[in-house]
Write a protein that binds this DNA or RNA. Structure first.
Length: 368
DNA sequence: TCTGGGGTCCTAGGACCC
DNA sequence: TCTGGGGTCCTAGGACCC
């Protein structure tokens, strides 16, 4: 989906059409002073937070997802900052996925605004099918999407990125030298900043460079698995199947504090935050019908270093008090020689709270 | 006043077992 | 007086993605 959160906000507030929009920051406080539903001009914003998404005209100024809001304000001071409304986004996410499900049931969920789907069994020309799909999504949601079509997930994903927004791009294996090789290696899903930097150190910047690298160079640098994977990507090869498995592996809740907290001086506040996180996590587990055996905590220090501790119980649980007790045990194993900026709680090794209900459930329904 | 929140997957070492 | 070769589970950290 194109600039998904920002596009949903424009649907909800059509009077903001043409206004540069940034979605991000915290849930609005002091919003009575703001002109629009808690919105501020970006330059007026003070505090922690990142850009969750923004409209394309704001991106053109150099702002991107994940950028700190204070930094984004230097590029786009006049942009309107809206706090995210996740319930609305989940609503439109459901609408778009349900619309796609009327065309094919072979859907892999990749988050709130993205899916892979398989057309192999369908008749018809790819571009025609793609346009029909885009129309279906537009009719159901009023939103545009960018669609990539290819012989595998690697090429479909790269294709989907080539003509944003409102794109429809077909990439065949024969197009790899002309259309894939000029692109930077970072366009490969799974090649992030670290791998990109290590490749750059070898003089490999584009996917074409990757295609022409000696196989043993990649394997000695990255190991046999990653080396082979990179070489395959450069040839447009990818045999990963569509994954329709939707059982979650873990559930977590975390929060970054308004100001860094001291483990001793701010102990009551931290204790309250931990309790709230555990309560929310337990409520979410119960609502989704899961339990979990591995309870973990996550701390981020003032210098942004992150540590985790976890503990596996004999029996799975969704009980807030048991989660809290395990989390406190984990916290005892962490050094507190610095202020803290984030605390999180996680439950992993999930299983159904009520196994029979699944064993006997007939056909699994779509998860959205 | 740099740097959110929710996920997945991989690696690697140690415990423990056969 | 030198110590195998699996396998699984647990824990911690890190890369990456949306």
């Amino acid at each position: 989906m194109d600039a998904f959160y920002a596009s949903v906000e424009l649907l909800r507030h059509p009077e903001l059409k043409g206004v540069p929009l940034v979605i991000g920051g915290r849930r609005a406080e002091g919003s009575a002073l703001a002109p629009h539903f808690g919105a501020l001009r970006l330059r007026e914003y003070l505090g922690r937070g990142v850009v969750t998404t923004c409209t394309y005209e704001v991106r053109a100024l150099g702002v991107h997802s994940g950028m700190g809001l204070m930094k984004a304000a230097r590029y786009a001071p006049e942009a309107l900052l809206l706090p995210p409304s996740f319930e609305a986004y989940r609503h439109y996410s459901r609408l778009f996925k349900e619309a796609v499900a009327t065309v094919t049931q072979a859907i892999e969920d990749r988050g709130i605004d993205e899916i892979y789907l398989e057309f192999s069994d369908s008749d018809g020309e790819a571009r025609v099918l793609g346009q029909r799909l885009k129309n279906t999504v537009k009719d159901a949601t009023g939103l545009s999407c960018s669609l990539g079509i290819g012989p595998n997930k690697l090429l479909a994903k790269i294709a989907s990125d080539l003509e944003k927004p409102d794109g429809l791009t077909v990439l065949a294996l024969a197009d790899v030298p002309d259309r894939l090789w000029p692109l930077p290696v970072g366009k490969i899903n799974g090649v992030g900043p670290k791998v990109q930097a290590r490749l750059a150190a070898l003089g490999i910047v584009t996917i074409g460079d990757l295609a022409h690298a000696r196989g043993d160079l990649l394997e000695t640098t990255f190991g046999p698995r990653v080396g082979q994977w990179l070489a395959d990507c450069a040839q447009g090869r990818d045999d990963r199947p569509l994954s329709t498995d939707t059982e979650p592996k873990s559930l977590s809740r975390e929060t970054t504090f308004e100001q860094d907290l001291d483990a001793r001086r701010d102990r009551p506040a931290l204790s309250q935050i931990l309790a709230t996180l555990c309560d929310r996590l337990a409520a979410d587990l119960i609502q989704k019908g899961h339990k979990g055996r591995t309870i973990g905590i996550k701390l981020r220090y003032a210098d942004f270093r992150t540590v985790t501790r976890d503990h596996t119980l004999a029996q799975p649980t969704a009980d807030a008090a048991l989660i809290k007790a395990a989390a406190r045990d984990c916290l005892k194993r962490v050094p507190f020689n610095q202020k803290l900026r984030l605390l999180g709680v996680r439950v992993g090794t999930l299983c159904p709270a009520n196994p029979e209900s699944r064993a006997f459930s007939p056909q699994r329904e779509l998860p959205f």
